[in-house]
Each structure stands twice: as C-alpha cells, then as structure tokens.
Simulated assay, not measured.
Amino acid sequence: MKIRDFILAVIVIVIWGVNFTVIKLGLSEIPPILLVSLRYTFASLPAIIFIKRPETSWKYIVAYGMTVGVGQFSCLFCAVNLGMPAGISSVILQAQAFFTILFAAILFKEQIKISQLIGLMVAVIGLFFGAFPI
C-alpha cells in the first residue's frame, strides 16, 4: 500500500470516529431529526457540485437517501439522544452491512459473493469481540 493511500485511510477512520462524538455534542443543542436534516443538507450540497450523479434512476437515488439518510440516521440520532453511547452507536451502525446484502439478495435477486460472505464473517467476529471482550 502506498503511503498516500495509508494516510487517506487513516484520515477516513479518524473522521468516522470523531463523527459520533460530534453527533453526541450536536444533540445536546439540536433535536435529533433537525440535526439529521442539517447533516444531510450540508453534506449533499458540496456533493452535488463535485460528484457526478450515478447512472441510475431517480427512484433508487431517492429510496437510498430516504432509507439511509432519513431512516437509519434518524434512528441513530434518536438513540444517541436517548442515551446510547457514541462508541456503541458506531459499532451498531455497522450492522448495516448485513441488511444491505440481505435486502439486495431478497429484493433485487443479487447473488451473494464469497467476498461478501468473508466480509460478513469478519464483521461478525468484530461485533462478537465488541460484545464479549477477551
């Protein structure tokens, strides 16, 4: 791995980790659903300018935005607002990988690949050790 790639990976990890602490801090002043709305508004505006729209129909773009943006993050922000620790919320959010693959297989009849199964096994092991530390 090139040093540039390694540094970019570390930056992504740090931003992802700090993200949950910032959510917790933001919820001390702003209601959960409003904070979700602000988060997606300020994240999507630069994305509209710099990122090309995917070559898929609008119904899939809107469906993804509503399920992940509104559904998943609204539940996450409400849970953190009710007292879920920021560290635990970051781990629980990773359960999205299971649902993404499951829904793709059921709704879109996609074949589950070996690499996806390996990834899910790694995720299960990580969640196991998170739940039952050695």
Rank of each mutant, 00 (worst) to 15 (best):
L102Q: 06
I48K: 01
C75A: 07
L120F: 03
I118H: 11
L93S: 07
I23S: 02
F6E: 04
M66N: 03
E29C: 09
T21Q: 12
V68W: 11
M66K: 00
P31E: 12
Q111I: 11
V62D: 06
A63I: 05
K2S: 14
F98H: 12
L8G: 02
I49H: 04
I15P: 04
R53C: 07
L8D: 06
L45G: 05
I7R: 06
A123V: 00
T56A: 13
S89H: 09
A104I: 04
S57C: 06
L127V: 07
K113E: 14
I101S: 12
S57D: 14
L38H: 04
G17P: 05
Y64I: 00
P31T: 07
I125H: 15
F42G: 06
C78E: 14
K52Y: 01
F77M: 02
L76M: 14
S115L: 12
L117Q: 14
S28G: 12
A104Q: 08
V22K: 06
A9K: 07
M66V: 10
T41E: 05
F77A: 05
K52Q: 07
E55N: 09
L102M: 10
G130K: 08
T41G: 08
Q72L: 13
V122T: 14
S115F: 12
T67F: 10
E110D: 13
G26T: 04
G71M: 04
V10Y: 10
Q94D: 02
M66I: 09
G26I: 03
I13W: 07
I134Y: 09
S89A: 15
M84Q: 11
F98P: 08
G87M: 05
F129R: 14
L27Y: 03
Y40G: 06
A95S: 14
R39Y: 02
I101C: 12
A97N: 14
Y60W: 15
S74K: 06
M121V: 08
L107V: 10
W16C: 01
S44M: 04
Q111W: 11
T100D: 10
W58I: 05
I48D: 02
N81C: 07
V124S: 15
A95W: 09
L107N: 13
F42M: 05
I112G: 13
A9V: 03
A97Y: 10
R53G: 07
Y64S: 07
F73H: 07
L45S: 01
Q116Y: 08
V10H: 09
Q94N: 11
L34D: 13
I61M: 08
A47S: 02
A86Q: 10
K52D: 00
I125K: 15
A97M: 15
A104G: 12
I112C: 10
I3V: 12
L93D: 00
M84S: 10
F128P: 00
A63P: 06
V18K: 05
V122E: 11
R39N: 05
T21N: 12
F99E: 09
K59P: 02
L107S: 14
M66R: 04
F77G: 06
T41W: 06
K113V: 03
F129L: 15
S28R: 11
R53T: 05
A47M: 01
I114N: 15
I106W: 03
P54F: 04
V124N: 10
K52R: 12
V10P: 09
